[in-house]
Amino acid sequence: MIEVLRRLGRTGLQFFERLGRGHLFLGYVLLGVPEVLSRFRLLVAQVWSVGVLSLVIVLVSGVFVGMVLGLQGYNTLVDFNAEESLGVVVALSLVRELGPVVAALLFAGRAGSALTAEIGLMKATEQLAGMEMMAVDPLRRVVAPRFLAGLLSMPLLAAIFSAVGVLGGWFVGVGLLGVDDGAFWSQMQAKVDLHDDILNGVIKSVVFGIVVTWIAVFEGYDAVPTSEGVGRATTRTVVHSSLAVLGLDFVLTALMFNDI
């Protein structure tokens, strides 16, 4: 009994210690961000590997998700003779929810895991220690550019996801199922609100971008410097950031779209 309590206490303490370290870490990284802005080349290289290389998976998934939305939405709406509203249904689902959430999940799997593995391996092979001995702060030189790149890429990826998703829905609805083209677009234009829908979606994607990238770089930097440690850290990145995205999505949705 005592042993169970003791173990519980130790796990709890470790959890909070790690949480504290994560926040300190974020603080140091943020201090390094202004410097990154003045060294544009570092940032561009990271936006390339974090953002641009995630583009294909985001584009392909976006099209398919949009097509599925088109099919499902049509099947439901046609019963009420409301298939002209298909554009609104597809666009709202994507902009409010699926764009930010699915793009963030894909981003965690594609870019987050890569960030963790890269930084963790740099630690395991003493590259970070070597930098420190050369009086170069790895938090500024290695972590800050990657953090900023993730933060900038994620909202753009979510926007791209929504955009190609709408095209996918249009292709299925208008192209295959015969929904009226004009109605599809004009209803969408009339019903999708800039502030309530688009801006809130953008806020979500920014928050998810911060959280996923933060978890990814922290897990890498905090990894046990062995092959097994890096492997575990990579898994933790994907699991924790997916859970964080889904949990935060509920919180943000509750705050934004309902007056509870």
Partner: peptide, 14 residues
């Protein structure tokens, strides 16, 4: 540290 060079046992090249 800028005035200290260190050669790591593993090399620690980037």
């Amino acid at each position: 540290r800028k005035r200290m060079g260190m050669l790591f046992q593993s090399g620690a090249l980037l």
